[in-house]
């Protein structure tokens, strides 16, 4: 088992290297001259040259790459022009907000999509199956920022069920003392149920928006892989041996069907992390996505690059987790390692 884990970790190293190289290249092809950009429009050529030297931009590419890696190792993602703060600090401070939203969306999607896909496969052609197919096709067709806006209109403006789409907590409430950074958990730890309710109310719409978006691929693959497994020969053997339907569906079919579902989770995460940016903008969610969007609008590129790199590293890590999970389910991967 440890062998497999080591092997998987080793396998994610090239991805990490690739990510770092690409982000470095992206910093190098910044629009225009980075130094004159940093110096501001009124800078003299001397001042630009000075800044160029200070930023190390006068050196050769490999040296710059080396310096870039050195900076990354020390957690130096550069400074934000607009706030003057180190990018890494700001990202770290805003990460829990994004993580709480994304996880809430994912969990909600899984809770709905898995049973839906399974029932659709078991009752092929029934109304559940039709619902599943509609959800699977419609879900991937919905622009996530548009669904978010529709929800705001319906549940905030028309029905008044949801609070104003303005962040994690309304302006009058105070954040719970930080333990995990997740307001839901922190407010429970602090036994502050009013804050918990307020947090939940704020989280509900953006989380549902994300869930609607990521539901489709999960439901689709669950249905498809359950159907494929249920039609396979070992299920016929299990039926011919008289095993109970519950045993066949859960222990035999579902565990095998989980393999493609887990693989799809990688793609779902990719979708979620991207959709997160849009949803955060719609709901003014103070996460790293809206941080990057604000920086983009202000033409402040260090935060954008920091954001891309942070997301990529997070994603590589998530994929590693998925690989490890796959190894736990599938003995073939485990033993052949």
């Amino acid at each position: 088992m440890l062998q497999t884990a080591l092997k998987r970790i080793a396998a994610s190293v090239p991805s990490l290297v690739g990510v770092v190289i690409v982000t470095f290249l992206l910093t190098r092809v910044l629009p225009g001259d980075t130094a004159s950009y940093f110096a501001g429009p009124a800078a003299t050529p001397e001042a630009i040259a000075e800044i160029r030297q200070k930023l190390g931009l006068d050196q050769s590419l490999p040296v710059q790459f080396w310096n870039y890696i050195g900076d990354l190792v020390h957690g130096n993602f550069g400074l934000s022009l607009t706030t003057g703060q180190p990018v890494v600090n700001e990202i770290a401070a805003r990460l829990p907000a994004s993580a709480e939203l994304t996880l809430a969306g994912l969990i909600l999607a899984l809770v709905i999509a898995l049973p839906l896909g399974i029932v659709a496969a078991l009752r092929q052609g029934s109304w559940v199956d039709h619902v599943c197919r509609v959800v699977a096709t419609a879900g991937v067709s919905l622009p996530v920022f548009f669904t978010g806006l529709l929800f705001v209109y319906a549940f905030y403006f028309l029905l008044g069920w949801a609070p104003a789409p303005l962040g994690r907590l309304d302006v009058f409430a105070s954040a719970p003392p930080t333990v995990t950074g997740f307001y839901l958990i922190d407010s429970l730890i602090a036994r502050d149920f009013a804050t918990f309710r307020a947090t939940l109310a704020q989280l509900a719409l953006p989380a549902i928006t994300l869930a609607v978006f990521s539901l489709a691929p999960i439901a689709r693959i669950t249905r498809a892989s359950m159907l494929a497994v249920l039609g396979s020969e070992f299920i016929r053997t299990a039926r011919a041996a008289g095993l109970e339907p519950s045993t066949i569906v859960i222990r035999y079919a579902l565990r095998n069907a989980l393999l493609p579902i887990v693989t799809t989770l990688g793609m779902v995460f990719s979708f979620l992390l991207g959709a997160n940016v849009l949803v955060e903008k719609v709901f003014a969610w103070p996460g790293i996505g809206s941080y990057a969007v604000e920086a983009l609008i202000a033409s402040d590129y260090a935060p954008v690059q920091g954001f891309v790199l942070a997301m990529a590293i997070l994603y590589v890590f998530l994929n590693l987790c998925i690989d490890l999970l796959y190894g736990v389910i599938d003995p073939r991967v485990r033993i052949e390692a």
């Binding site: 990510v19 992206l26 629009p31 992390l273 891309v308 990529a312």
Partner: peptide, 15 residues
């Protein structure tokens, strides 16, 4: 290895 939409953001921001 990148979340795809995020990579697209980075590319457009850079290019």
């Amino acid at each position: 290895a990148f979340p795809l939409f995020v990579l697209a953001m980075g590319i457009v921001a850079a290019l």
